[in-house]
Nucleic acid binder design. Structure first.
Lengths: 337, 337
DNA sequence: CGTTAGCACTCTCCATACGAGAGTGCTAAG
DNA sequence: CTTAGCACTCTCGTATGGAGAGTGCTAACG
């Protein structure tokens, strides 16, 4: 069994590996981390930890490297949950003091903040197996031939679209459309809006019915909506990391993070745990990429809205990343709660 | 002097290099491009072209590679201006048939389109030494504690911001603010809006004056505005190119493209030429990066709004890229004209 | 006189070899 | 159980030696 001393050895190996990014040998381990144990004794301990699957050896005569299982044990049982440095807490709170409530802006700022706190790429996703409900919907006239479509949802965020409309559509027509659409659609999940049977609307709106159909397809989740509520920021942080010294690896991660389906799977895989850590092959999509993911769930009321996550190499400072992700999610939930 | 035959040789070298990305030798050149000349004769021609600076030699016994000057000559005098494949023209026109007139969305779609047409990263910038004028400004109430700020400019695009406001601010107050702000600010260049002396506004708006100041800072170009009108899309196209097989080069380009100041300089360097090509060291910022840039100017009326550009390795298919950039700029200008 | 064939020379690239360095596993002594 | 010592293994950097491709030059040719 993993006794106390072996735990300390494992922790020491991981900590050193987090810093150096290079296989940890018994000699240097003994020197830097004077357990009062010699290198030879540590060799025995390391051999045991390897046999049990907590450590790997890149090749026969290299040092040891943590395995998925090793990191998992470390995260679950050895990690001392530090609290975030005061200064970083202040940054997070300051970020959510802003008054802007635009969906895309909000996601982007959050991802940017988290990436800059952790030094890894950050992802914020708000997709929708269970879509937010539409609270209100407004169609507002702008100058010559323009209109704004504003959709307020129960997520606390507002989606919007600005478009041009036929010149012969008077402000009064817009107002009429707004009231019909509001009456008909308010309270429905956004995902259903596209499927609403439009027969009634078509009769009520006469020759502008076609326009309505186009409008609805512009709402988030609609057919024409090209801007899924998912943001990745801080991709460039990867450039500096030794595990991404080959273009092929960087490219693979880029493709992973920008692939549409990744977002959906991410959500499915994470469920509604408040905080989740996925290491290496634990997350199917990331197998072979040597990536880890630390995420938190965004909620409003009882409902899961999405996730905020940090994606990085398996060799990441889980303590700090966990604290940062948790704190950001907490502030988000508070700001929109 | 560069006679007709030397021109043909230069063109052949460049064309072959565009395909192979590898130094072109006299032997293969003679084989593929039967000028009716032997390799030995071509060697003489190549030696002349090199001496005059149109070609470079990576090392003594490699083939020849076009220099900046060589590409320049090719672009200015040898390039046959092909017209864009019909299919691509259709894609471009289709893209601008959409009715959306949101500034950020518009820029993003344009960059994405251009990148996918050319296979290189595309940049769209609409910064502002000479900022667009504010046509109208509206402050609209949303459900509970929310408001939308819409600013329509004479660029044909609409900038917007959604934010939360104090609960005690009634719709009537918003309407009042809208009318005061509109009267005061309409017709002014956006860049000046932040500097407008607010004394009058403060008196007119009483206790909500502070809010106004915050609002104005959210307008594009304002202090708090974090979303400069500049978009880069298609960065991942670089991953496949042989000139970017080292992470360091990719990183350098990433930093160039995302650096704030790049956008401003880009504009300054391009002036108002309808179309511009900058090769390698011709553009100071891109020295040492072996990059080229093909750009077109976006205008509305007589005014320069910004630029749309493709950034890629010097070894790019200038003919096709030029055609694509030109066509996209033309359609943009038509769509918003 | 321009063009071409031939040839010696140069430079890169790749595969191989080899020693240095770091680490391991095992054995035997404390 | 812990530790020192030792033989062994594997990587990595450097050196070495063709093979391949291309050049420049010279001399012959139409």
């Amino acid at each position: 069994m993993v006794d106390d001393r072996k735990s300390r050895v494992l922790a020491a190996v991981i900590n050193q590996y987090l810093e150096s990014a290079e296989p940890v040998g018994s000699r240097t381990l003994a020197r830097r981390n004077g357990f009062g144990l010699s290198a030879a004794t540590l060799r025995n301990e390391l051999a045991d930890l390897e046999e049990w699957g907590y450590l790997d050896k890149p090749h026969t005569s290299a040092g040891r490297v943590p395995s998925d299982k090793g990191y998992r044990y470390y995260v679950d049982r050895l990690l001392v949950r530090r609290t975030l440095p005061a200064q970083e807490g202040v940054r997070i709170r300051a970020a959510y003091r802003a008054q802007v409530r635009e969906a895309t802006w909000f996601l982007q700022q959050t991802a940017r903040l988290l990436s800059s706190l952790t030094g890894y790429p950050a992802v914020v996703v708000m997709p929708a197996p269970r879509m937010p409900r539409l609270l209100s919907l407004q169609l507002l006239p702008l100058g010559e031939g323009g209109a704004a479509l504003l959709a307020e949802t129960d997520t606390g965020l507002v989606a919007h679209r600005i478009l041009s409309i036929p010149a012969d559509l008077a402000p009064a027509d817009l107002a009429h459309m707004t009231s019909v659409l509001s009456r008909e659609l308010a309270g429905r999940p956004l995902a259903e809006v596209a499927d609403v049977h439009l027969a009634y609307l078509e009769r009520a709106l006469g020759r502008h019915a076609a326009l309505v159909e186009e409008l609805l397809s512009l709402l988030p989740g609609g057919d024409t909506d090209r801007e899924p509520l998912a943001t990745v920021e801080g991709f460039d942080t990867l450039f500096g990391l030794p595990e991404f010294h080959e273009v092929a690896r960087i490219r693979a991660v880029w493709e992973l993070l920008t692939r549409d389906t990744f977002v959906g799977r991410l959500l499915a895989g994470l469920g509604d745990e408040p905080m989740a850590v996925r290491i290496g092959r634990e997350l199917a999509d990331m197998a072979d990429h040597d990536l880890s993911l630390v995420s938190a769930t965004l909620r409003s009321g009882g409902q899961v809205l999405g996730h905020v996550a940090v994606v990085g190499p398996r060799r990441m400072d889980y303590g700090h990343v966990l604290a940062a992700v948790e704190q950001v999610a907490t502030e988000w939930n508070r700001a929109l709660g």
